[in-house]
């Protein structure tokens, strides 16, 4: 049997739709996860007992919540979230229904990634800003975020590729997108070729996101020698 026999116009349309759904799920989830996770990550650094606005009790509580939300495997999270997902999106099937669990799984992960990037900012530079009379908010906006930018971009790349991989996992519960196609054809219908091609598309997407993210981080980093 010829491998390419299966790759007809219909399959290509299906793969394109799958790619669109996957990218949509991934980027919408990533953006919402950052809207929640980025401030959370910054708060974790700033309120740490060695931070610029220490509130150790708050930091401990938030850190604990983040750890709990990060603990369950994604598939379990997906299932546990069914009622909430249904309440928000009206369904538990398709790309739309994968976004809430993806966000809940990714936001704490994003918070930790952002936290570690922001922590890399040299304490001496922060202190210099304080010596110039910078307020905590000014330090966050004008020192921590801009100085950590290259590292934040690397983190965002990592988060986005991880979310994409998770979104593919959601195929197992009919989540739509490429993962769904791979499972439907490869696992339920033994059409291995389509599964392989679909997986290849996922690999390519991850490569492209990864490489462009790293490139963006490099070209925006002013520490490089020109």
């Amino acid at each position: 049997m010829n491998f390419l026999d299966k790759i007809n116009a219909q399959t290509i349309t299906m793969l394109l739709d799958g790619t669109r759904d996957t990218l949509l799920m991934t980027f919408v989830s990533a953006i919402i996860a950052y809207i929640i996770g980025m401030p959370l990550g910054i708060v974790l650094v700033v309120t740490h007992k060695s931070g610029i606005r220490p509130i150790p009790a708050l930091e401990k509580v938030l850190g604990f919540i983040v750890n709990i939300l990060r603990s369950p495997p994604f598939l379990i999270m997906l299932i546990l979230m069914f009622p909430i997902t249904r309440a928000i999106t009206g369904t538990t099937l398709g790309p739309k229904a994968v976004i809430p669990p993806l966000v809940v799984a990714a936001a704490p992960y994003v918070a930790r990634i952002v936290e570690s990037s922001i922590k890399e900012v040299d304490a001496g530079v922060i202190e210099a800003a304080q010596s110039m009379g910078a307020s905590p908010l000014q330090i966050i906006l004008k020192v921590l975020i801009p100085e950590a930018k290259p590292s934040l971009i690397v983190g965002a790349t990592l988060a986005t590729t991880t979310i994409l991989a998770y979104s593919a996992m959601a195929g197992i519960v009919g989540g739509g997108g490429l993962g769904d196609i791979a499972i439907r054809y490869g696992y339920y219908r033994y059409e291995t070729e389509i599964m392989v091609v679909t997986t290849l598309v996922i690999v390519v997407l991850i490569q492209v996101i990864q490489e462009s993210g790293m490139l963006l981080s490099r070209v925006t980093d002013r520490r490089r020698k020109v």
Binding site: V125, A128, M132, E147, D221
Partner: peptide, 18 residues
């Protein structure tokens, strides 16, 4: 503090600003 400039051994410039 704004009336007291400070300089450091390691300069502490913002690396992402010219």
């Amino acid at each position: 503090r704004r009336n007291m400039g400070m300089i450091f051994q390691q300069f502490q410039l913002l690396e992402q600003r010219n």
